[in-house]
């Protein structure tokens, strides 16, 4: 019964209608997808590439989407897989071409983060904090980073995160806790141990 319900969504659609349906769905989850890609890569060009490749793959495998799950989570799963593959490739490239530096590509994300508030001084400080925080997140082990981005930055539940990342709930729990402890430690090293007490 479930199987029929999950497969039925595209059966009555023409190819043109399928395309329209897909475009509509993509539009709805675009903000989340963009954020996810930016926080994973911290680079606007890489993020755009990532989104593009994920969307192409999603469209290609659109028939495997099960409507009982949120569409955005399904696309996030695909995007994460593409990201992992790209990271593997990059690692391999760095092994064979170790002299290639890509420091220049970093830190362009910060043009895209809008800081709210009128006070210019406050804005500058916040911008610096976001910059440092972004770097701390970037330097986390990849698996911790995935969980922090999904849970803390995008606001997913543990259960959703475990589905997207493809690991048990308990693993999400412990990875997230370890990641937050690491972030806490880095922030305290940089801004002093009283900094967190004054936050918020």
């Amino acid at each position: 019964m479930d199987k029929v319900a999950s497969e039925v969504w595209y059966q009555s659609l023409t190819q043109e209608e399928e395309k329209l349906w897909f475009e509509q769905k993509i539009k709805e989850c675009q903000p989340k997808l963009t954020k996810f890609a930016y926080h994973l890569t911290r680079n606007s060009e890489k993020a755009q590439d990532l989104i593009q490749e994920a969307l192409l793959r999603a469209f290609k495998y659109r028939k495997s989407y099960k409507p009982q799950y949120p569409f955005s989570n399904w696309v996030c799963t695909i995007l994460l897989n593409v990201h992992r593959q790209k990271c593997k490739k990059e690692k391999l490239m760095r092994f064979f071409v170790p002299w290639k530096e890509d420091g220049e590509e970093e830190e362009d994300l910060w043009e895209f983060i809008a800081v709210e508030g009128d006070n210019p001084e406050e804005k500058t400080i916040k911008n610096q904090i976001w910059k440092d925080l972004g770097k701390v997140i970037e330097e986390l082990p990849p698996k911790m980073k995935e969980v922090v981005v999904l849970c803390d930055l995008l606001g997913h539940s543990y259960e959703e995160t475990s589905e997207i990342v493809g690991c048990p709930l308990g693993t999400v729990r412990s990875r997230l806790h370890r990641a937050r402890k690491k972030i806490k430690q880095s922030v305290e090293e940089k801004y002093g141990s009283d900094f967190l007490a004054t936050w918020g």
Partner: peptide
Amino acid sequence: AVRDMLEEFGQAGVS
């Protein structure tokens, strides 16, 4: 505080 900070960071707009 870390959790709040991360949440706020996540809500800061990406263009």
